[in-house]
Computed example of a mutant assay.
Amino acid sequence: MEFDFLTPLDNDLIIDIKQLSSQHLSSKVVFHTEAEFPDISKIDIAIIGVLENRGKDNSEVNLSFIRKELYGLFPGNWSKSIADLGDIYSGESLDDTYFALKKVVAKLIMNKVIPIVIGGSQDLTYALYRSYDDLEQMVNLVAIDNKFDLGKQEESISANSYLSKVIVDEPNNLFNYSNVGYQTYFNSQEEIDLMEKLFFDAYRLGEVCNNISISEPVFRDADIVSIDLTSVKSSDSGNFTNFQPNGFNGKEICALSRYAGISDKVSCLGIFNHNNTRQESVLISQVIWYFIEGIHYRSNEYPFGSKENYIKYTVPFEDEDIVFYKSNKTERWWIEIPFFTNSHNKLKKNTLLPCSHEDYLAACNQEFPERWWKAQRKSIL
């Protein structure tokens, strides 16, 4: 059984957590103990630890600080049931760990449970991606990261090269990759050019910090969100082991996490490259809190349902019209994308891509929205 890979929380940790008051989050969470495993059919959100760091530096992974900080917070007006399913220990090889994580996450997603995976090194994102193999669907992956983590083709998989394996390995279920917060000096021009060539979305740190709302449509179209904690500057994360003078501040990374939670489509969150300090654990606990808060404010607008609740806007261009939809409920925007359903590009249908109000205004000025253009190119290839 898939959940046999999970080990219960340490008894001493359970005792510490249970000493918190009934108003703390700890009282709202069901824990995997030596005596009991939570009933998955009664859970909406599952927290999983993965004690695997060989993809980065092989250092020990200790998630106790994170759990103490998280369960010591007060919940919002939440109705979703939450369980802490314990930890997956590192296997004999990295592949063994990936296999265990893949099986656990796939089982949870099939049961409509949203897993929050705390690592460990970020190459575990590859296992999250492979979890969707049995679901027979294309996958959109969003990484909050200062690097693209492409690496060289001959490199073995690591926290700095996992994306190459995601792109190349069969079965290839990746439809789109988006990076939020990359820093140009950490990425070669060859890598930046490859992002363009593959029609992937990449947003520089400065762009997002200047207007964080531009990232919201990206998360609205994501299945997996992977957060690399080195994308947060050290003055806010407390990570002075791997010093980062630039990056997102605490407020921004929590806002991005909330965007991920609000997305009706996001079905898995991963938080990686934690440096095992108490200081960073405080930030991680708040990032998780905001993701769970976002889940409680989902509007169930995806997949696109009845058009009665949307206003349709048609923007004429010289060769074709571009159609937008605006939700009456949330005032969020979508753009219509034509795509072809067979290899001969003869059967044309339309799908909807999340976009921003700025994309609509750009279209009104006869500027093709970049995300629309990239998505259309993908549908033709």
Rank of each mutant, 00 (worst) to 15 (best):
Y360N: 09
N187Q: 06
S234I: 03
V282A: 09
N211H: 07
N239T: 08
S327H: 06
V142E: 00
L124F: 09
F368A: 05
V315S: 09
P8L: 09
N146T: 00
Y162A: 12
V117P: 08
D84Q: 07
Y313H: 15
F272Y: 15
T241N: 12
I212T: 01
C209D: 00
I157V: 12
T341A: 09
E69W: 04
T277M: 10
S215T: 14
N345Q: 11
A46I: 03
D236H: 14
G49N: 13
N11K: 15
Q366Y: 10
P217E: 04
F65S: 08
L361T: 11
A106G: 09
S81F: 08
F74V: 15
I144Q: 02
T184P: 04
Y182V: 07
C268S: 13
K349V: 13
V315M: 08
R258K: 15
N172W: 06
P338W: 08
Q153S: 12
G91W: 06
F317G: 11
E301D: 09
F31G: 01
N309G: 15
F74R: 12
C209K: 14
L347T: 10
I288W: 01
S356W: 12
I40C: 01
G261A: 01
S299L: 10
Y360G: 08
S226K: 00
V180C: 05
E34D: 05
V29G: 00
D96L: 02
V142W: 01
Y132M: 14
G120K: 11
Y325T: 05
I15M: 15
L25Y: 05
I271C: 04
V113K: 12
S26C: 09
I335Y: 02
N345V: 08
Y132E: 09
E52G: 08
P171E: 11
L85N: 01
F65L: 06
G72Y: 10
L283T: 05
S263L: 00
S79H: 09
L141S: 03
N176A: 10
F186H: 13
N328V: 05
E191N: 14
E331V: 10
S356K: 09
A143W: 00
K251P: 00
S281Y: 06
E155P: 02
G76E: 15
I311Y: 13
P316N: 12
E293T: 11
H344L: 13
S156H: 10
L85S: 04
L205I: 09
R204T: 14
D201Y: 07
L347F: 10
L6I: 11
D12E: 15
G72K: 09
S158H: 10
I40E: 02
S93Y: 05
N211R: 10
C268P: 06
F272Q: 02
G181P: 06
V266D: 01
T314P: 10
F340R: 06
T33W: 04
S26G: 09
G238T: 12
S234A: 03
S161Q: 11
K147N: 02
F219I: 02
I380P: 00
Y203L: 15
